[in-house]
Amino acid sequence: MDSTDGGEAEKRPATFVAGPIIIGAGPSGLAAAACLADVGIPSTVLEKSACIASLWQHRTYDRLRLHLPKHFCELPFMPFPQGFPKYPSKQQFVSYLESYAAAFGIRPRFRTEVVVAAFDREVGVWRVRTREGDELVSRWLVVATGENAEPVVPEFQGMGRFAGRVVHTSAYKSGADFEGEKVLVVGCGNSGMEVSLDLCRHGARPHMVVRNTVHVLPREMLGCSTFGMTMTLLRWLPLRVVDQFLCAMGNLMLGDTDRLGLRRPKRGPIELKNLAGKTPVLDVGAMAQIKAGNIKVMQGVKEITKRGARFVDGAEEQFDSIILATGYTSNVHSWLKDGCGMFTREGMAKEQFPGGWKGENGLYCIGFTRRGLLGSSHDALNIAADILLHWRNSLS
């Protein structure tokens, strides 16, 4: 969202809306609207794009599947269809979200970009200005644009002179577009690993840049999902013991990843997730390709050249294309002008899960605690319950 105030559009009379304004029609925004609808509170959902879940529909690769089993990714009050596999595909997840919106009567205002949202202290309301010049007013504002609003595009020395293609994973669809090419994949998170695997399966030659330490774990252990097993163990065992178990199982099933250039952090995967928000990579096949030499692990990039890249270890390689698997970031600070200290400098919730969803003056956020869809469901239920208290008081 742009940081301008929409002044280029003709300002129109403000419109008061009865319930909360929800900004964003991704899974988090839909969950918030559904939970409000369940307690009889209307909401107005504003969405910049032309569809729900635009990140999933337009900025993800074709082979993407949910990394966690479906029962960990359900939104409140509605399970996935019984016929869906354990790890639904991108297309199946989008169809689930479309059914979810229809079931709760959620009809976002599409192509409505918010340029300013600010609290009017004199009146005690939130004023939301759109690029079209409309102004909506409500007592409550729910920020649901999430932690993945805008692609992160790093600036490498010499990037402008590279002769080949440079694409962010938000524009990557399939390895078929890179068949026969030698490709530099910058980033070794879940996206970097999966894109590298996809490139392998379509006859490309990926070289994956690993700048920092990373935990790589099998997606399943002993026939159970790693995530599900972790949640169960944390109920009974100290976090450090669970981390030790996960690392031991990872080494047993995947081998010593340090020897492959994937150095494990000193902190355990769950501790690191809680402290820094770094999610461990759940392997779905890339490790086998790395061991086979089909995915080359490279150290950090020092400089991009006309034909390729130089690396921090002094190596130099030529590449046909570069894919930036460098993730996304929040854009909340570009349009929210009175966040009441709710967000960090990076645009994430200051308070850690299970808090972080409630601010001051009727401000709420959902999907900013790095806890995935489970965290969004938790936030949505809390937001609806809290607004319901104020809603009843206003009617009494």
Rank of each mutant, 00 (worst) to 15 (best):
G355M: 12
P238R: 03
P265E: 07
S43W: 02
R59S: 12
P280I: 05
V216W: 01
V143D: 08
G105M: 07
L374F: 09
N382I: 10
M208I: 07
I106A: 08
S89C: 11
E113M: 07
W391C: 08
A117C: 04
D62E: 15
W56Y: 00
Y96G: 03
L234P: 06
R264M: 11
I304H: 06
E303N: 13
A149R: 01
P42C: 04
L36R: 06
V186L: 02
S174F: 02
Q318M: 13
T145S: 02
G250R: 10
D258F: 01
R165C: 12
G314W: 00
L217F: 00
T44F: 03
R65T: 14
G261N: 02
M298G: 07
N190S: 04
V142H: 06
V281M: 01
K302T: 14
A144R: 00
W140D: 09
A309H: 04
L222D: 13
P218N: 06
H71S: 13
V143H: 08
E132C: 10
G347P: 12
G175D: 06
V152Y: 15
T369K: 06
G133E: 05
R370D: 10
D283E: 04
G268K: 05
M298P: 03
L136F: 09
E181R: 14
P218T: 04
G255R: 04
K273T: 08
